[in-house]
């Protein structure tokens, strides 16, 4: 057979090329059918706010950074530069995953008077809007996290944060008793967390023992 393959002999060469063409064509057709997917890759896309983040993709012997929307990189380490990924390809490869994405969580901030569990009047008015937002979702998850400023002892603040979170849970009317699913009135919640981050997760960084109204807050997140 090898005697038939010298480069200078045009006829057998053409015959070999023809034999190769068929499998290549059927392979390409298979790829098109399977949604033009050729191997593993990652794409950076815009987030809900229209911003674009940064990712570093490391394979065995190289690292590629992506910082522009709709640029991708293969995950087998075969490229040193990002490539453009069109919307059509994104839709073909990721349509079902994108459609399965959960709705963006919603966060409300409620503010309290210094050293107390009393809501400011503005925050008091926010309560019905939060209840409405919870009711707008099916099987909503609710987390209520109490925060304090750095005035006073850290352990006391941890307790105060918990009391604040608990107070907001009562204001909202969310309850979970005896292992039963959490509820808001007749609405079943997917999950409920009532917890405290004390003085350790401030919105505004301050030195210790600093009263700061913006840090005396309860975050209610609805997922």
């Amino acid at each position: 057979m090898s005697a038939l393959l010298p480069l200078r002999a045009p006829a057998p060469w053409r015959r070999v090329a023809g034999a190769v063409r068929l499998p290549v064509a059927s392979l390409l057709a298979a790829l098109v059918v399977s949604g033009c997917s050729t191997g593993s890759y990652l794409v950076l896309v815009r987030d809900d706010d229209g911003r674009t983040g940064v990712v570093d993709v490391r394979t065995v012997d190289r690292s590629v950074r992506l910082d522009r929307a709709n640029t991708g990189v293969p995950l087998d380490g075969s490229a040193t530069e990002p490539f453009e990924v069109g919307e059509d390809r994104i839709r073909a490869d990721f349509g079902p995953a994108i459609a399965a994405r959960a709705a963006a969580p919603q966060t409300f901030l409620l503010y309290l008077e210094s050293g107390s569990t009393k809501l400011t009047p503005e925050s008091e008015q926010l309560i019905p809007r939060i209840v409405e937002a919870i009711r707008a979702r099916t099987l909503p998850g609710v987390s209520i996290i109490g925060h304090t400023d750095t005035a006073g002892d850290a352990r006391a603040n941890q307790r105060l944060g918990q009391e604040r979170a608990q107070l907001i849970a009562e204001h909202l009317g969310v309850v979970a008793r005896g292992g039963a699913p959490a509820r808001l009135g007749d609405l079943r919640l997917g999950d409920l967390t009532v917890t405290s981050h004390g003085e350790s997760n401030p919105l505004v960084r301050t030195p210790d023992n600093t009263p700061e109204a913006r840090n005396r807050r309860v975050e209610v997140t609805i997922r």
Binding site: L42, D47, T52, V55, T59
Partner: peptide, 19 residues
């Protein structure tokens, strides 16, 4: 991680496909 890579994410939104 994927079987062939490690991705450091500094945000925010990515799509990943592993064949």
């Amino acid at each position: 991680r994927t079987p062939t890579s490690t991705v450091g994410i500094r945000g925010t939104h990515i799509l990943v496909k592993v064949d």
